[in-house]
Amino acid sequence: MNSDREEIERLIAQVAMGDRAAFEALYDRVSAKLFGVSLRVLDTRAAAEDAMQDTFVKIWNNADRYQANGLSPMTWLITIARNTAIDRLRATRKGHQDIDTPGLELAAPGPNPEQSAVAASEATRLTGCLDGLEADRGAAIRGAYLEGASYADLAERFNVPLNTMRTWLRRGLMSLRECMSI
């Protein structure tokens, strides 16, 4: 797992230098996972293929900023794929605004950004913790992350006022963080 991470980090660093062979190697290494994520969000293959292409264009263009954001390499890659897919999903909605791509605007670049304090072991507890939340709260968080649902979408889905939805979700997030850090 660690060597995987180092390998992907090395590839991203090479891509940041404009290394096309490294970019192709990175594609071969992670595209199936990123395509899976795009498919999960977008359902149709054609849309997922387009989203994944956009994802890799962003990766190529922003690899030099990867170091500045402190994310683990797979988190960075998957988050770009997820945000790109959700942007595409939302593009048909009124008043659409793009989600930020990590590394584009995240944190002022510094020499040695600290890595995320969230350990891998903590992250793996997420699913269990989500399942442990009151059912609606877990579903709301999943809906926001995997389906790009907005507060308004969620309020409608759960048939509660917008402010109630926000309070629910924030409570859910607090419980989630607490559960994961144990």
Binding site: L71, P102, Y145
Partner: peptide
């Protein structure tokens, strides 16, 4: 970033295609 690191685990069970 910490939250992104946490949330990304929601993709753990997504099968690569």
């Amino acid at each position: 970033a910490d939250w992104q690191e946490r949330f990304v685990a929601m993709t753990d069970d997504i099968t690569p295609v």
